[in-house]
Computed example of a mutant assay.
Amino acid sequence: MDLITVWFVLLAILWTGYLVLEGFDFGVGMLLPVLDRGRGLDRGRGLDRGRGLEAPSSHLDQRGEREANDRRRTMLTTIGPHWDGNEVWLLTAGGATFAAFPHWYATMFSGMYLALLLLLVTLILRNMGLEYRHKRTDREWVRRWDLAIVGGSFLAPFLVGVALTNLVAGLPMTEHTMGSMRYTEFDGSLLSLLTPTALLGGVTVTVLCLAHGAHFLALKTTGDIREQARAVATKAGLASAVLAVVLLATLGAQRGTAASWVVSGIAAVALLAAIAANAKGAEGWAFTGTSATIALTVVAYFLMLFPNAINGRGDSPDLTLAAAASSPLTLQIMTWAAVVFTPIMLGYTAWTYWVFRRRLSVDDLPQPVGAH
């Protein structure tokens, strides 16, 4: 296997790590407004009415607000030690693309500039919400940062799904000649990225991340949050199964190979196994199933992409890996750096997940800053 293929495989691994790990982060963020109400407050209201007592609405509103905030804090605490480390995978994937395949990087960022800028702004606002939400306790402050977290958690995986699907489904490209050198460039607009297949890819990745995050919450929490997360995971899992089958069949019909069809089939089986495990209360196996589904989907994408960096749409020329790659010396230096630093990154990631492996509940939360 030559170094060009080695770095193509390493990029697939980096994107797999990012979507598996950051995928449940996104899912947890999407679920903040869904799982922030427990059954305890409703039972309390019913008990009061049954005794002929009618609690003041302001008291119930304050109580419900505190409960919702505590539940959201619990959900965010489950990803607190991990979300910033998970984003390192995206930074590494971008840096590796720039160094190993500069023409691939340049074509992506020229063709998808506005979409990738929107993704960057979305991630920044979401991360600011995760960092600053707990700095103050007044209602408007918390509500606005919650909106940034929830909105970013929906939009970011959608944009990533659209971008990756476009690479496989194909972009409008043209070939240019400069002297004796020939090169391929993007020849389209922002609207040319918003094809039905690309939008389907964005929706599928988003819903799959939602199911993945629900499995993670069921694995990491106790009580009402755990039970409600399992219920959401079943619905999101079934929806993502339908979407994934349609998406992979559509892409497979255009770009599929025997290997990509096999991997796509295994991904579908893994997702169905995750849904079955969740129904039985085996949250660990359910989370493993959606992790495998995301990983295998990325593998199927890269199999449909190889030996190209970007597939051409219709009669457009492809941008091949050979044409997009750096010099052999650059790839050799990068390979030695990867041999040294990749095990360190993997070891540190595994260690953090092991240290913060226990389940959480609302009772484990400390008093928020500024609370009396």
Results as ranks from 00 to 15, higher is better:
Q228D: 11
A229C: 09
A229T: 01
A231R: 10
K235C: 03
K235F: 14
A236R: 06
A236N: 06
A236Q: 05
G237F: 08
G237M: 07
G237Q: 07
L238C: 13
A239N: 08
A241R: 00
A241F: 06
V242Y: 11
A244M: 14
V245Y: 15
V245R: 13
L248R: 01
L251H: 04
Q254C: 05
R255S: 05
G256N: 00
A258E: 04
A258G: 13
A259W: 09
A259L: 12
A259M: 08
W261Q: 11
V263W: 01
V263I: 08
V263D: 00
V263E: 05
S264I: 08
S264N: 05
S264T: 04
G265E: 03
I266Q: 09
I266V: 15
A267C: 00
A267H: 05
A267D: 00
A268G: 09
V269Q: 09
L271T: 12
L272R: 01
A273R: 05
A274L: 06
A274W: 00
A276D: 11
A277Q: 11
A277M: 11
A279K: 15
K280T: 13
K280R: 15
G281S: 03
G284K: 14
W285T: 15
W285I: 14
A286S: 12
A286Y: 08
A286V: 01
G289Q: 13
S291F: 10
A292K: 01
T293K: 12
T293A: 15
A295R: 01
A295D: 01
A295H: 01
V298E: 02
V299D: 04
A300K: 02
Y301W: 14
F302V: 00
M304P: 06
A309V: 09
A309T: 05
I310Q: 00
N311F: 03
N311Q: 14
N311V: 15
R313I: 02
R313W: 05
R313C: 04
G314V: 03
G314H: 02
S316F: 11
S316W: 10
P317D: 03
P317C: 07
D318K: 06
D318T: 06
D318Y: 04
T320N: 01
T320H: 05
T320M: 04
L321F: 01
A322K: 06
A324S: 04
A325R: 02
A325K: 07
S327M: 04
P328I: 07
P328M: 09
L329P: 00
T330S: 11
T330C: 04
L331N: 11
Q332S: 14
I333D: 09
T335F: 14
W336C: 00
A337L: 15
A337M: 15
V339G: 03
V339H: 03
V340Y: 03
F341L: 15
P343L: 06
P343A: 04
M345T: 11
M345G: 14
L346C: 02
L346N: 06
G347F: 02
A350V: 11
W351T: 05
T352Q: 09
W354F: 14
W354E: 12
W354N: 13
V355R: 15
V355K: 15
F356L: 08
F356C: 10
R357A: 12
R359I: 09
R359T: 12
R359C: 08
S361V: 08
D364A: 13
P366E: 10
P366N: 11
P366Y: 10
Q367C: 06
Q367I: 07
V369P: 02
A371L: 13
A371R: 09
H372G: 02
H372E: 06
